[in-house]
């Protein structure tokens, strides 16, 4: 792998151990979304992966929505 970026390697790969390991990409109602698992077992939507700009106007996919 060769990275072509003006960033320094230490900016991309810091030495401390990574957090946010409970983050995953799932299919929610036919749309791909990034979610983070909460302590109570529910998921919180972090990011919607879609090319349809109208999807981003849909309240159900706005970041922060809790998915059960």
């Amino acid at each position: 792998m060769i990275l072509y970026t003006p960033l320094a390697e230490t900016d991309i790969f810091p030495h401390e151990a990574g957090e946010n390991v409970n983050r995953e990409c799932i299919n929610y109602n036919g749309k791909q979304v990034f979610v983070e698992k909460n302590k109570d077992g529910s998921y919180q939507l972090l990011q919607l992966l879609s090319t349809d700009p109208q999807d981003f106007l849909d309240d159900n996919y706005s970041p922060g929505t809790i998915i059960n």
Binding site: Q54, F56, S62, P63
Partner: peptide
Amino acid sequence: QKIQSLGQTNVPQAPDS
């Protein structure tokens, strides 16, 4: 939830693009 995460309440709806 939305105010906490987005800082806004709602976004306008529009027809398919």
